[in-house]
Computed example of a mutant assay.
Amino acid sequence: MVAGCGLPRSGPTKREIFAGSVLREGDAFILTVNDRVTRATAVTPALGFSDAFKRAGLLGPDTIRPGDTLGLTIWENVDDGLLAAEMANSTILEEVQVDGSGFIFVPYAGRIRAAGNTPEAVRRIVTERLAEQTPDPQVEVRRLAGNGATVSIAGAAGAPGVYAIERPTRTLSDMLASAGGVAIPPEVAQVTVVRGDMRETIWFQDLYENPRFDIALRDGDRILVEQDTRAFSVLGATGTQARVPFQTQTLSAVEAIAQVGGLLTSAADPKGVFVFRNEPEEIAEQVLGRDDLTGAQRMVYVLDLTQPNGMFLARDFLIRDGDTLYVTEAPFTQWNKVISALTGTLGTVATLDTAASALGGGGE
C-alpha cells in the first residue's frame, strides 16, 4: 500500500531496472561488468594526423611567396649607369612588393617572377637581364618582411590571430608556442588543423609526447584550439546530479564517481552502480557474443563495488561520451522512507483527531 503511494526517491530501483532486460521482455541488455566486458568496451577517441599531414616537409624559409617584401641593391661597373644617380655606382630599391601573381618589377630588367624562387635565384635573373645593358652588374636581393605564408589561430589559444610562417614557427608546436600556448587545461585541449578540404584533430598533450605529430605547417592552414566536448550524465545517490564534462582523455567509472563527489554514504547502494549506454553494433556483438544484432543497442552495465575485485573492475571500465551513470538507493534508505511515511501519517492523523476533539469541546 505504501509503495503504491509513490514514495519520493532519486530514480528507479534495481528491481525496476532489471525488469527492463530483454530477458524479461524489455529492450535493454543488462550485463555485469567483468574483465571481458572492460576490454571489449575500452574505446577511446582516435585522434591524430594522417600520413598526408605527417609527411609534409617544412616550408623552405628562403622561398619567396606573394606578399613578400624584397630589397634590392644594384652596383654598376660604370660611372654613368642605367640606374645609379650621377656620381654614384649603386642603386637601392627598397620595399619591392611581390604582387599577387608572384612578380616584381625591376627597371631595365622588367617583370621578374619572384614567387617560388629563392633570393639567390632572383639575384641571378636580375643580373642576367641587366648584363645585356650594363657591363658586369652586381646584384643583392634581401627579404625585408614576411614569408608570404601565414596561418590563422582561433579558439582557446593564448593569443589568437594571423601569424606568418617563419623560420622559428614552421611546425605546429612552435606556432602554438608563438601564439601563447593554450588557454584551457592541456589535459582536455584539442588542436584541429584545417588544410583545404581536410580537417584533422589531435590531443594537445599528444603533440608534445609524440614528435611525429608535430607537423609542418602550410600557407593558409587554420588552427583551432578547443576544449573536449565529451560529457556524461550522473543521477541517483551521488554527490551531485548533473551533466559532467570529461576532465581527462580517458575516464574510468571510479574516476567519474569521484569527480561528482562519490557515493552518498547515507543513501547509496554500492551494489547498484549502473552505466546506461547506446552501444554501437560491433561492440555490442562482441560483448554479447552474438552476430545477429542490427544497429546500436541499449546496454546497461552493472558494477558491484562490494565484490573483491569490484573496485578494480570499476577502475578499468571506461566511461564514454553520452553515458549515464546512475547509482541506486540502498534498500535501507527505502525502508526508512516507508517508516517515515507511516509515522508521519500516523502523527498527522493523531494531530487532526486532537484538533477535532478540541473544536468539539469548544462547541459544548
Rank of each mutant, 00 (worst) to 15 (best):
E281P: 06
G180I: 12
V338N: 09
I165E: 00
L59W: 10
R195F: 01
I165A: 01
L23I: 01
R170W: 02
L305I: 09
G60S: 11
V234K: 04
F53A: 07
V254M: 11
A154L: 09
I17F: 05
A85P: 08
F332P: 12
I339H: 13
F274L: 15
P160I: 01
V106Y: 00
W203P: 05
R290F: 03
R111Q: 13
A159L: 01
W335N: 13
L325V: 05
A358F: 13
I153H: 06
T150K: 13
V98D: 03
T324P: 04
T171I: 11
V349Q: 11
Q334F: 14
I153C: 08
L207K: 10
I112M: 01
V188G: 02
E25Y: 01
A231L: 06
T41S: 15
V141D: 10
I223D: 02
R315L: 05
A109F: 00
G116S: 06
T118I: 07
W75H: 06
R195S: 02
F49H: 10
G116P: 05
T169Q: 05
A52W: 00
L303S: 14
T38W: 13
F276D: 10
I64P: 09
L47C: 11
G181F: 11
L82D: 08
V254P: 02
I125C: 00
V151Q: 09
T306C: 09
V182I: 13
A84Y: 08
A157S: 03
I319G: 02
G4Q: 15
A114S: 08
S173C: 14
S357K: 12
G322R: 06
T306V: 09
G6S: 08
V244R: 09
D79F: 10
L235E: 08
T169R: 05
D27I: 00
A145T: 13
I165H: 02
L303V: 09
V182H: 12
F105K: 04
G20F: 00
A164C: 01
P280W: 11
L318I: 04
T248K: 13
E132Q: 04
G363D: 14
V122F: 04
Q133K: 07
E95N: 10
D291F: 06
I125W: 00
T351F: 10
R111M: 07
M175Y: 15
I319W: 02
P135S: 05
P211L: 15
A231D: 07
G347Y: 03
W203R: 11
T38Y: 11
V141N: 10
T41D: 14
D99Y: 06
G295T: 04
A19V: 01
G181L: 14
A154F: 07
A356F: 13
E255T: 05
F246V: 06
M198V: 03
G344E: 04
F246W: 08
V37P: 14
I257F: 05
R195Y: 01
L172C: 11
A330H: 12
M299W: 07
V126F: 00
G236C: 07
V254T: 09
V98Y: 05
F317G: 06
R9I: 00
L303H: 15
R222F: 02
L176V: 13
L72M: 13
A355H: 13
T240Q: 14
L293G: 02
S10C: 00
Q138N: 12
V234E: 02
A109T: 00
G158C: 03
P168M: 03
A109R: 00
V338P: 08
E166N: 01
R212F: 09
T41L: 14
